[in-house]
């Protein structure tokens, strides 16, 4: 395996959890809901996934554990914001804190337990292509799932009536309601989908990225995923580019250390967050780009009048 191939491989594995979490949040935000609890749903996915995999002995069962944990957290958020009409920002922040605490309790018995890594599934012939073969075609099932989900989200949003309804609800919930679309139900489903994706992203961390349970192992990836959605101006294809870019930046530190560059490791490990801030500032300064794709109802609670 050459050095370039190794770097590409690590970039992809670093990008996958960001991609999964961000693509889910993209759908949530397209429906007009801002769920800042991605970090909390993700860490619960990691804990739930690892617990389920260890107890059952199968990493595939673990995937379902992560999925379920993410959905449960999202359902809580949906209940509070859609039905009790609580403030979305405050609820999302609370969800993140709750997830961090709760996952610590769930993960407690598993600290130091060795995990089982999701096996790589190599596609015959294609995985033998030099340089990119292993990177693209000898990955575990969650990597393929991330690619499929991303494509699926794009197809759904821009090629189906259901996706059109999601975008309509996010653009103007008043009009969508007047036309007879179930705004609350659309948003509920979008939030649950976002939770499922965040759960998968967490499960990827504890089942494939580092098959271990470590408290707070998401290490702010949920926040980066949130920034990614804005970075991508709510377009699925740009989320892929952004996830790879952010993945590459976060991986850079290890390679820089390995190469013995005289840069403090603390600086390098803070690089992804610095880049996030930088990119957000750059994007926000160009309001025209933001305005075209920003869901106009983002963060605005919907209460139908009687």
């Amino acid at each position: 395996m050459g050095a370039a191939e190794a770097i590409l491989l690590t970039v992809v594995t670093a990008a996958v959890p960001l991609l999964l979490a961000a693509i889910g949040e993209l759908v949530v935000e397209r429906s007009g809901v801002l769920n800042l609890g991605v970090e909390g749903m993700m860490i619960m996915g990691a804990a739930g996934g690892f617990a389920a995999a260890t107890l059952s002995g199968s990493p595939y069962i673990g995937i379902f554990g992560g999925l379920a944990a993410g959905i449960v957290m999202a359902a809580l958020f949906a209940f509070v914001t859609l039905f009790l009409v609580a403030n979305q920002v405050a609820s999302g922040l609370a969800l993140s804190l709750l997830g961090l605490g709760l996952s610590g309790i769930i993960g407690e018995p598993f600290v130091g337990t060795p995990g089982t890594k999701l096996p790589a599934l190599a596609v015959p012939v294609l995985s033998d292509i030099p340089l990119v073969g292993k990177v693209l075609f000898a990955q575990d099932i969650l990597v393929y799932a991330a690619a499929a989900i991303t494509f699926g989200v794009w197809w759904f949003l821009y090629r189906t009536r259901g996706g059109l309804i999601v975008r309509a609800v996010g653009d103007n919930h008043g009009s969508a309601h007047a036309l007879g679309y179930p705004v609350i139900r659309v948003r509920l489903l979008a939030i649950l989908f976002g939770g499922a994706c965040a759960g998968l992203a967490g499960a990827y961390l504890s089942l494939a990225y580092t098959p271990l349970w470590i408290e707070n192992m998401t290490a702010g990836r949920g926040w980066i995923a949130l920034a990614l959605v804005v970075f991508a101006s709510w377009l699925p294809a740009r989320v892929v580019v952004g996830a790879l870019l952010f993945g590459a930046v976060s991986i850079l530190q290890f390679h820089a250390q390995a190469m013995g560059l005289g840069i403090p490791s603390q600086f390098l490990s803070s690089l992804p967050y610095l880049v996030t801030i930088l990119v957000l500032v750059l994007i926000s300064s160009n309001r025209s780009v933001l305005r075209v794709n920003t869901p106009a109802s983002l963060g605005r609670p919907f209460v139908p009048d009687r």
């Binding site: 975008r167 103007n172 008043g174 969508a176 036309l179």
Partner: peptide
């Protein structure tokens, strides 16, 4: 009302700004 055959053109338009004309119509 629409099933009966009553349509309405609103004073403050109930359109979706970010969508195309065809998409707006498809929704209705």
């Amino acid at each position: 009302a629409r099933r009966l055959g009553i349509g309405m053109v609103f004073q403050h338009f109930s359109l979706f700004d970010a969508l195309t004309v065809a998409e707006n119509i498809a929704l209705a």
